[in-house]
Amino acid sequence: MKVSLTVNGRAEEVDVPTNTLLVDILRTNLGLTGTHVGCDTSQCGACTVHVNGGAVKSCTILAPQAEGLEVTTIEGIGTMDQLHPMQEAFRECHALQCGFCTPGMIMQAIDLVENHKDLDNCGIREGLEGNICRCTGYHNIVRAIQSVVDQG
């Protein structure tokens, strides 16, 4: 089936079987491999992207459900020369080790900061419930997000 969607501001049309997942459209059809598949069971958040402005797990959205959606992936938030403030904070705070969870963490972190006022350490940790990191122990991830909150 044909699916039309907007990804990082660009209109795209793909032709895929109905049982394709959004994450596979992004990675395979559009070559946007920054979005990762960690678990494929809706648990880990590595596949997190923004749909119409909110964080969602792209491994749990079917191709036909993606019709007409506005999707933003990790590739769409900054450039190599000018990182998004959240990317910059992750770099500055050493908030990643292997980097596998990082694109999902950053997309979730941006949603978190945009949708919550007065985030504290506890609120950030709760806000990361849908994202699993097996390397960092979360501490520096929380620090990175806190630094963006503190910058206002």
Binding site: G45, A55, I61, G130
Partner: peptide, 9 residues
């Protein structure tokens, strides 16, 4: 309920 991503869908 669940996590933020689940609550969005």
């Amino acid at each position: 309920i669940g996590d933020n991503q689940v609550r969005n869908r």
